[in-house]
Amino acid sequence: MDIIGNLDYNIAFVVVAAIYAVFALGLNVHWGYAGLFNIGIAGFFALGAYTSALLTKASADPRLFEDFKFGGNLAASFEGIPVVGSLDLWFVVALLGAAAVCAVVALGIGFLTLRLRGDYLAIATLGIAESIRLVFLNEKWLANGSKGLYNIPRFLGDVVAPRNYDYLFLVVVLVVLAILYLAVERITKSPWGRVLRAIREDETTAAASGKNVFKFKLQAFILGAAIMGIGGALFAYNVRFLSPLTFDPLLATFIIWAMLMVGGSGNNKGAILGAFIVWGVWTRTQFLPRFLGEPEFRLFLIGFIIVAVMLLRPGGILGEGRKVSRPAWQQKTASPET
């Protein structure tokens, strides 16, 4: 057995699963904590990926791409400024840029729909995802249309040999995931997160307690969308090729929902665990015999998993668990007899 080949396969697996875990964390902020039903993850996914690519990719060769005018030449025009030692800060800029663009779009959509009934958001996110896909498909000057963008530069690509690059990128992705996990964990344990859960459980009571429900929902929607944008940027740096066809609803929206539902919505560890489990099932089932390995059957499986989890184990594997605010916890541990 080819151990090295197997190891490479597993590394690539973990990289993709960790990127999906970033999306699952973002979706957990939306659905798990704030109860916001976003079925347009693919929109933020594409927006984050294209933003990061356009920020860092060198401009296109005009002889090859007659239609493609906008090269996103920013990296080239500021060459020399953002490289500290061997650390290419443009990667960081790309990640933050992707997050910022997604946050702005989320602000617009949220502002329009979050005052209305909860399911209007679902329809609006579906619409915005489709619109974003159509823009990237049709506006050839912006993103080269269906031919897509390729040769997205590698972050720290000159530090290691190309064949070992996955190891380096694995570390990068895991560091980003860890930072996001700790940040989301910290934020959702704060009083702000507590208000979100209160709104999710009972909007009227939260409003009656003097909380501005709309403002909190909008903040949560923007935060989750920004995290999804970072996920999109990581995805772009991993595959280094983007086309509008990459962002089909199955692999860019539905599978992420299945991940969160399986792992346990309302639990950040669950979101990450679910990403690894579902991506594992997804990649391994392609080796199943006969029709079980067909993509059609696996599409059915994703839908089936979502419904089955909702019916049989609404909390997912880990479930939300009890959340106690830190002051209350300290009080409890300090005086156990009360």
Binding site: W31, G35, F37, I39, G118, D119, A122, L250, F254, W257, F291, E294, P295, E296, F297, R298, L299, F300, L301, I302, G303, F304, I305, I306, V307, M310, L311
Partner: peptide, 27 residues
């Protein structure tokens, strides 16, 4: 459950139904 949870379940139904169509008729 909250109506949004029902909408969520119907998303799962939507995906599964399309999967059924593709199992029998391909893509």
């Amino acid at each position: 459950v909250n109506p949004v949870v029902l909408a969520m379940a119907s998303l799962g139904v939507a995906i599964a139904l399309r999967g059924v169509v593709q199992i029998f008729w391909g893509g």
